[in-house]
Design a protein around this nucleic acid. Sequence first.
RNA 1: UCCUCAGUAGCUCAAUGGCAGAGCAUCCGGCUGUUAACCGGAGGGUUGUAGGUUCGAGUCCUACCUGAGGAGCCA
Length: 441
Amino acid sequence: MASPVTSITQIGRHDGETVTLRGWLYNLRESGKLLFPIFRDGSGVIQGVVAKNAVAPEVFETVKHLTLESSVIVTGKVRADKRAPGGYEMDVESVEVVQKVPTEDPFPISLKEHGVDFLMEHRHLWVRTPRQAAILRIRAEIENAAREFFNERDFVLTDPPILTPAACEGTSTLFEVDYFNDPAFLTQSGQLYIEATAMALGKVYSFGPTFRAEKSKTRRHLTEFWMVEPEVAFLELDGLMELAEQFITHIVKRVLERRRADLVTIERDVATLEKIEAPFPRISYDEAVKMLQEGHAKGELEQKFEYGGDLGSPDETYLSNKFDRPVMVHRYPAKVKAFYMEPDPQDPSKALCVDVLAPEGYGEIIGGSQRIGSYEKLAQRIKEHELPEEAFKWYLDLRKYGGVPHAGFGMGIERAVAWICGLEHVRETIPFARTLTRIYP
RNA sequence: UCCUCAGUAGCUCAAUGGCAGAGCAUCCGGCUGUUAACCGGAGGGUUGUAGGUUCGAGUCCUACCUGAGGAGCCA
């Protein structure tokens, strides 16, 4: 008679019963005629107990010689135990080894510390460790919360193309691919395309991978990353900023509700996340520059900030550290921003745009703007930026056939995950990071 | 592209220019409540590559390779 199969997170429901777990051997300790195998099944971890005088000799010998990360099907009796970190232990009765890790080639990742290069080279195995698994569950929660936020508000998910004929923004370096003997590029943003679907459906969003061939080598950069981008017809900058702060607040709230145990596993300071509530502080570029120049005068900031330039990474860190929640910096000089941004009617040298800087020095997690509504203005900008007019003909059409004020933003998933998880580097936020120096595994 | 740092056992690291070592992992042995268990033993090395200085180089010099962090650029 087979015992019921359960998962480790559900095991508390079976106290005193005999159940079956399917998973992997995470660790094995022994003390004379007692064995303490620790099993994991993806949902959690539980310690088993095998006493030599309580089981058949072959069960004891099998467990004693099990190698780490061997896959097993274990049957035993669940017992509440104050000594167990999860509250329960299993008195093992039988073990079926699905696949034994060869002793001459053991699982490479030990419970001791490893270097970054080694871990990234073994990313396919590193994801099994409790910390990495927790991060990936939190990432999934963030992605679900993002979709939920837009779906609840009647946004329509529209998937933009990944192969594009030309640069979206004309700035970044793109990955070029051969498209039947013609050059094509991997998208750096779905934005221009969802502006078109927003004119069809009103409120839309996209959620997908984007690619940048920039030679960026920092803890904030990947060459392939995921972005969620809403785009809304008849929305202006103030409404966009409200949307952004509600969006972030919703995501943080969901993670706190549903992934608290994982936040504890990765030792995230939950209290700082609990402070994240709308409204977020809003400062103009001019105000930000004033803060940066004061910071430099006080010696808190090494580099002197020159008015008119874009904020550098140390500048963003300095600004974000002044607040306990994300700060929204709006109305940057138009010349440091993308060609499609609507100029501020109060001061046409400024763009109606906003960057949301995450706290604790995580930098820009959202960039957005109101888009240029006028055909003539946009056509002029395309010329000024020396973009191929042919490639942007369809984009201009959006201003010819019923153009309206509209706005949207993009949030980089990996930076949001890094911030919410409190990670040192975005490479841990995605199952398989693609960086300047790494495309394996 | 630029700046800084690093490369020694499967992993994490040590070794004043003078015999290449430790912990973990693996294997063997011991221990009936271990918590990255502990104790004893064994195996395991082209010191990133090439050249140079020297009686002698893991160590000093030159070039290169690889990686990490940062700048720029960006989400």
